[in-house]
């Protein structure tokens, strides 16, 4: 997970920004690789999904605050009964989607409960 960090004000951004909205012209942006660990701020469980995600139901979508600060939406791979607001999560590399049976497969980061870590 690559985002940006402003060396002037210390703010982290995901997805990456080219301009720091706090510092504007005085901002000094650099690339930042996020650890991917964070906390669930809120979540919902999807039981009725769009066609591409039908096979995954039920699945959890959460707003996660990364330890560096930015918030993002991501899937948390665990059973719905194990989801809790405030739970710690870690990054996992998963299939994010497929363009049907013939198209491209998208890969990227999802999250898993930190307590499940081996």
């Amino acid at each position: 997970m690559i985002g940006t960090h402003c060396k002037s004000c210390g703010e982290y951004y995901f997805p990456p920004r080219t301009l720091c909205p706090n510092c504007r012209r005085t901002g000094q942006m650099e690339e930042h690789k996020f650890r991917g660990t964070g906390t669930v701020i809120t979540y919902t469980t999807i039981y009725s999904a769009t066609e591409d995600f039908e096979r995954l139901t039920p699945y959890n979508l959460a707003i996660i605050q990364l330890d560096e600060g930015p918030k993002l939406t991501g899937q948390v791979v665990c059973s719905p009964e194990n989801m809790k607001i405030g739970m710690r999560v870690r990054p996992v590399f998963r299939i994010l989607g497929k363009e049907g049976e013939r198209g491209i497969i998208y890969y990227g980061t999802k999250f898993a409960p930190a307590e499940d870590a081996p």
């Binding site: 096979r55 995954l56 791979v77 996992v92 590399f93 998963r94 299939i95 994010l96 497969i105 890969y107 999802k110």
Partner: peptide
Amino acid sequence: PDLDEDTATIAVEAAR
């Protein structure tokens, strides 16, 4: 494997 795991995701996790 989980529903969203395949050889590529397993290879990446092992490599990491």
